[in-house]
Amino acid sequence: MTKNILIISSNYTGNGHKSISEALCEQFALHSNVKVTVIDGFSLGGDSLLKIGKSYGTITRTAKGLWQLIWDLSSIKPSIINEIIELTITDKFMELFKSVKPDLILSLHPNFNGSIINIMEKNKIKIPFITFIADLVSIYPLWADKRADYIISPTIEAMEKCIQFGVPETKIKVLGFPVRSKFYNSPDIINQYGTYNKPLTFLLLSGGDGVGNMNKISHILLSNFNCNLNIVTGRNSLLKKRLEKSLLEKYADKVHIYGFVDNIEELMVDSDVAFTRGSPNVMMEAIACNLPMIITGALPGQEERNPQYIKKYNIGAVCTNVRKLKTTIDNLLSHDASELIKIKECQKNYSDPNIAKNIVDFIIQV
């Protein structure tokens, strides 16, 4: 008998939820008796809710204070958020439910955990509901609805936060952060960083929406190091144009500027060091590619403790002050790049290509 699984994801609030969904769907596809339907949760609320989802990139690029306020309000009164979302999505969710007839629901976005559980309770729908937490350390209370049958946590730190929010430990499964299989195909090579005879290849990126002080960082890298620089600006087309105007005339042969790309894993494999915001999805993809990274900033709220997490496990370095960036890189490259090589070794110990498979196996058992 075919098992129908409904995944509630998000296509526009960054690229992380979509990437997680794709990583899991790769593994679900290996099971002939499983049918998966993926829906953008924001689309269940019609145009108004979808516009809110699409505004994520604009807010996080230009109004971090507003994003902090949204985070704080959601943390203080999660039940209100659940009720508002519930009222907005009930009709379309019930239509979807009757069409798909799922045997299990998996939610990958915090806005659709408590809200959908509310709908299920009121309509006496009794099927398993599982949440996967798409953040590493700092999590919304919206992630931690103890009415879920299980909450899959990517880290021990996120599990501990769930317990603080009142979720029984027996409901939490720490299974890691799933990454698409193509990121694990990088060659097993320890780069020779200790010489400047060959230009280093730096990769500057900041998630699907392209945020951060990328212009200043680019000038520091290109003017102080023997390097080639690949820059990925994501969906931020205005930033791409600004960087092209600022950099191409002076550094034409050393810099390549991309918008949103589908082959980021190829750029990662070809790079020596990446510079990125503390986006969990980007960080985990870099680790899968065994690419040392320097975290240059983090969004308030869900990302703010990710730099400390990176340092705790020595799977990257942190430099949030661009004036100290040159010194940070010099320290990593000194003594035949011993610190960079240690980071690569720690990444290998941390990384596990079976995470997505293990998560899917657990869900199917449920």
Rank of each mutant, 00 (worst) to 15 (best):
residue 280 P to C: 14
residue 212 G to P: 00
residue 68 Q to N: 09
residue 222 L to F: 04
residue 10 S to I: 02
residue 93 F to V: 09
residue 345 E to G: 07
residue 123 N to D: 11
residue 328 T to C: 12
residue 27 Q to V: 03
residue 122 K to V: 00
residue 148 A to G: 09
residue 300 P to G: 12
residue 269 V to Y: 15
residue 170 T to Y: 15
residue 354 N to H: 05
residue 347 Q to H: 10
residue 311 K to V: 08
residue 37 T to G: 07
residue 46 G to L: 05
residue 29 A to P: 05
residue 265 E to V: 00
residue 310 I to P: 11
residue 61 R to K: 07
residue 187 P to F: 05
residue 364 I to R: 00
residue 153 S to R: 09
residue 109 H to P: 02
residue 300 P to C: 06
residue 135 D to M: 12
residue 306 N to T: 10
residue 171 K to D: 14
residue 292 P to L: 13
residue 161 K to T: 08
residue 308 Q to I: 02
residue 123 N to H: 15
residue 27 Q to K: 14
residue 266 E to D: 14
residue 366 V to C: 11
residue 350 Y to P: 15
residue 292 P to A: 15
residue 159 M to K: 15
residue 289 C to A: 08
residue 96 L to V: 03
residue 36 V to A: 06
residue 6 L to C: 08
residue 97 F to R: 09
residue 170 T to G: 13
residue 355 I to H: 06
residue 324 K to E: 13
residue 43 S to H: 01
residue 333 L to F: 05
residue 227 C to Y: 04
residue 197 N to Q: 09
residue 81 I to N: 07
residue 314 N to I: 04
residue 334 S to R: 15
residue 27 Q to H: 06
residue 318 V to F: 05
residue 106 L to G: 00
residue 123 N to K: 13
residue 100 V to Y: 03
residue 267 L to Q: 09
residue 286 A to T: 01
residue 327 T to A: 02
residue 317 A to V: 01
residue 334 S to L: 08
residue 335 H to M: 04
residue 325 L to G: 10
residue 141 P to K: 03
residue 89 I to C: 05
residue 135 D to V: 10
residue 74 S to I: 00
residue 167 V to N: 07
residue 270 D to A: 12
residue 330 D to A: 05
residue 351 S to E: 08
residue 13 T to P: 00
residue 199 P to N: 12
residue 235 R to N: 15
residue 7 I to L: 13
residue 137 V to A: 14
residue 220 I to F: 09
residue 44 L to T: 01
residue 345 E to A: 12
residue 65 G to M: 06
residue 224 N to I: 01
residue 161 K to C: 03
residue 256 H to A: 09
residue 118 N to S: 12
residue 53 G to M: 02
residue 131 T to A: 01
residue 45 G to E: 01
residue 78 P to S: 00
residue 217 I to Y: 13
residue 46 G to D: 04
residue 23 A to F: 07
residue 313 Y to S: 02
residue 105 I to G: 03
